[in-house]
Each structure stands twice: as structure tokens, then as C-alpha cells.
Design a protein around this nucleic acid. Sequence first.
RNA 1: GCUGAAGUAGCUCAGCGGUAGAGCAGCGGUUUCGUAAACCGCAGGUCGUGGGUUCAAAUCCCACCUUCAGCUCCA
Length: 633
Amino acid sequence: MPKVTLPDKSVIEVEPSTPAVEIARKISRSLAEESLAAKINGKVSDLNTPITADCELRFLTFEDPEGREVYWHSSSHLMAHAIQSLFPEAKFGVGPAIDDGFYYDIDIDKTLTPADLEAIENKMHEIGERNDAFQRKVIRKDDALKFFKEKKDPYKVEIISALDETITFYSEGDFTDLCRGPHVPSAGKLKYFKLLGTSGAYWRGDSKNKMLQRVYGVSFPKKKMLEDHLKMLEEAKLRDHRKLGRELELFAFHDIAPGAPFWLPKGMIIFRELEKFIREELDKLNYDEISTPMLVKKDLWEQSGHWGHYKENMFILDVDEETYSLKPMNCPESTYVYRHKVRSYRDLPLRYSEIGRLHRNEISGALGGMFRVRQITMDDAHIYCRPDQILSEINDLIGLIRRVYSLFHFEVSFKLSTKPDNAMGDPKLWEEAEAALAKALEQNGIKYGVKEKDGAFYGPKIDIQIKDALGRDWQVATIQLDFVMLPERFDLTYIDVDGRPKRPVAIHRAVFGSFERFVGIITEHFAGAFPTWLSPVQTAVLPITDNFNDYAASVVDALKKRGVRAELDDRNEKVGYKIREWETKKVPYMLIVGQKEKDSGTVSVRRHHEGDKGAQKLPDFIASVTKEIVEKN
RNA sequence: GCUGAAGUAGCUCAGCGGUAGAGCAGCGGUUUCGUAAACCGCAGGUCGUGGGUUCAAAUCCCACCUUCAGCUCCA
């Protein structure tokens, strides 16, 4: 009898060919109820897969990423089923689960409208209520081809023709689809869903192929989860940095400069605070700041290799019979600073930081608010070090990145990308470097993911992701080792102890990535209510009537003297009106002053979003707000 | 770049062949007020740009510009 090992290491014996789901039932009814699929010896399988031999078994629920994937994949089948019954002429492309839902690509003559989506959604409920089982069937290739040829579905025929492996169909009611699976046991498991929209997508992602309509949706086993998800999408819309940027007067876009923001005075305050902060951090870590030319001859890019691989993304212009380009990255030019004089092993590491503007000609369709711009300001740096210094440099960088991001209350995660197949450079150096990166992560107690073979051809890297207040992931910082592009192509050397020239290792790194994108991210993360140290206006002083304008002005004066960004609101308006306005501008503190405050030398403090905090002596308020600013709380 | 949608006052939007509209913001006045919108008045627009159809175009047609959603996540 097969022995089944469960995640808690307990072992149970079962009759041969017992479906996995029976084992779940034996454990508990709720487990059987919540399970979506079974992981048998590490392979995600249908819940009713018969257990025929000894195995390790784990049940997957919606809590597991793999469980969600099965759930969404099954949802996409249910959607296709609904589409087929409403539009029998529809042909189907692919319909996978994605990070936050699912889609199906369909080929149909009419353009689907929101009303159609609603009809499809209703049909899905109707079909779901029948609770038909998802049935798996292994099928011979020629039978599979015959089936879809008869169904006149050229996309499925194309997919099957290219398959060598075992071909399986899944049927659920009167809908049959080519599918590797696995699926939830029956359509009734799929309860709460919402179709979110449609878009065009080329068959196989190739613009030479026909464009299909992609229908996106999301589904959940509990009503509350769907509601929360939809609420989150709404919230994201409200927090859209393009809207907040305009309303809070941070930045603006104009047709005259596509893909480039105009930084408004208030946005520039945030920019400068971030810049000041990162410079202070880098000073502590013994970086040297440099600034290199923005307009350079193409020879530089020929030498670095960018001319061959990156030319389409560069702004190129002819000047005096020479071809120039606006720099799309800083790295090649930093080597000129390195090569300014002969370097000794004693000089290393050299840490060159550069906050400069870069120009990248992103294709027009890729532009989007601050997230994707053509003119970016990067907090870039290139560290030149000896191979034996890699570990300590990476340690410092990990520390820096964690320190910076914890300040913004972001959750940080790290991913190590290893040697790709097209790697260049000394294999031994690769090995040592990957080991150093892994060791640095481990020394810092970091659990990290590994992306096999995902490094650049010139070195392994660590990508840093952050999770914002809405649970969305952003790829921001990066730490990239480089043995080839800068050191080899620009023939960088240092004189080692033995008097011989050696190659340094270069480390490309950025913490914020680009200021534009980072400001966009934090605008949405904080929903425009920036922490006090970043707030363009830190306190607004509101006299109750113009009888107290003088006292209010003296309060503003006192704040400004202590470096607090304060504004006087002496407009002839009721205090309720002024409060409403400063609330919507998300200013952290409002100080309301009238007769009482003037007589007692106090201010009535109102905190954004929290309300009235009562009166405080002015010096006390100044002390607490300046403390908050200095500590960046 | 490709597919689709959109562009009217600073902002949000109505108007969709017949003299350009509202609310908010702005400006002037009245009011002097205690924790999220006082009242009255005024001003504000080459209807994205260029061309065409028409007696007449914000409105219909064509081209371009810009923005938005998507185009990577592969039975």
C-alpha cells in the first residue's frame, strides 16, 4: 500500500489509486473544502489524481501562489466556456493565469463591449452553478488535431502541431479545451469573479500575427476577497501619481515634451530632499561625486558596445560633421574618471556617484507618467574594486538599500541572478562573485530568490524589489557586478602589490533607480500624504480672522527660522474652509491661531487625517516638529 | 512602433451640424467667523494641430500630435 508523507512529516498508508482528495477528507473536512490542487512529489496535480505509489503530498489552497494559479487558470477556462456559448464562432488562443488574475485571448469579429463582458460574467455564474467537474483526458496527437480542425480553431491546431509531450484535454460540461492542467475539481469552486477589461494582443506576441482580443479577469473563492481586490483597484486609481502630481502641484506633463515631467516648485522640494538625503548617506560611505558630459561622441558607445545593442534607445544628433548622442547611461564615462591617473591597489575601492540626467528614447507606447519617462535622473554610482573587496562592498550596499527603504516603510525583497549562457569573462571570477553575492545576502540574514541564468553577460546581479502600501511590487534598486563591459572594454587597471597591472571589478548600482519613477512610486505609496521631512509644505498657519494675521505671521516666521517649511493662510475665509483646503493638500500640520492662542503664546495643532490635537506652546511645537523632520519619522 | 479609446476654461465634465455651457479654482466686493466648502458679482475658451465636406463644423471625413489601457507573463 502506498505510503503518503504529509508536510508535517506524518506518514499514512492508503489503498492504491486513492484520489488525493480522499486523503484531504481524512485529514479534515475544511482542508478538502479549501484545497484546489495537490502537490505530489513537487508536481502540481489535480485533486482527484490517484495515488499509486509512495509520495510526498501537500494540498494547495488559494493561500499558495500555486493554488491561486490553478484557481485562475480554471477561471479562464470557465470564461472561455461562457464565451463559447455566447459567441459560438469564437476561436481561442491561450488563456493562462497571470500574477493577479487570468486572461484568455480570443479571435472574434465583433469588438467586445463592457456590456458583453457583463453578459459573459453572468454566463459564467450560470455555468458555474451547474458545478460540472473538470475532467482530464489523455489524447493522441492526431485525435487532438482532428478535434480542433473540426472545431475550426486554427490556434489550437498550431499549438498542438508543435507539441511533443503527452497531450491532454480538459472538459467541463460541454466545453473541451486543450490544456496541460491541472484544474480545480469542478467549476462550482469558482465563485466570485469580475471581468476587468479587454485589450488587443497579437497571437504569440508577434505583431506580424493577427491581433486577438484579450479578456482580463480575476476571481476569488470568497466574496470579501473579491470586494477587497476591487477596492484596492479603486484605491490605486485614486492614488494615481499623475492625478496627485497635478493636484498637489508636484509635477506636470505637456505635449511639448512627451515623456518628460516639468518639476513644479513643490515637487522640486521632494526631489531636493531625496537628493540631499542620498548624498548624506553616500558621504558617510565614502563615495566621491562626479559629473560627466551629457553630450558625447558616438565613439564612446562603440567602445562600450552600446552602439550595437542600444542604439535604438539613444537620442542621436549630428553636430559639425560628427555624430553625438545624449548619454543614456553614465557607466562608460565614469571610466574616464577612473583612468584620470594610474590607480594603485591601495586606492581601491573607488566609489563614484553621479546624479545626472539621462536620455533614453523609449518607444512612444511605453511611456507612462513618471513611471516610464524619456529623461530620467538616476542616483547612479560605479564602484571600482579588487575582487577580494566585492563582499564588503556588497554588504555596504545591502545595508544602504535596507536603511533607505525602511525609512519609507517599504517591504524589501532581494533576488540573485546568476551566470547566463552567453556570459563573458573569467568563469572563476563568476564563481567567486556569485558566491560573494550569496554570502553577503546570507550574512545579512536575507532570504532571497534566485533567478538562474538571469544575470547580464558581464556579471551577476542582485535585483531589489519593494512592496508598496497597496501590496504592489516595484523593481527599484539594483546591484550589478561587471567584469567585462567597463573593465575589459575600457582597459581599466590598477597596480597590484606585485607591481603588475590587474583588472578591477566594476559594480553598477542605484538605490532609488530614477528620481522620477521613485517620486511616482512614493506619491502613490503615501497617497500624496508624504512624511513631514518630505512634505513640500510642512505646516500651514491659519488665523481665524484677519485680526490674528500678525500673530500668525510671527508663528510662520519662527517656524521658518528653524528651517520648517511653513505657509501663512491669511485669506479672508472661514477657518473651516481653510482647514478643508489644507487637508486636501495633505499638509501634515495645521496651526490654528485666534484670541486664545495669541494671548497664551500657543498654537492649536491639527494633524492631517487625524484632526485636532489641542493647543501647544509654540516652542514646544517647533521642538517636536523639527525633531520629527530631523529623524525623518 | 502596433491595436483600441480619448483630447472642449487651470481642474472635473456637459454639448455631438445652426451665436461655446456648468461646477470647482481665479479675480472684485460683502462678511470677521474656532477645526473638512459663507454670500453676491466679474472674468476666463485658436473646442489638441492642419486639411477637407457643407450656406454653416466643437459636432461629419482624412492626416498628424499627445494622453490612457494593453501588446512580456505562452496548451
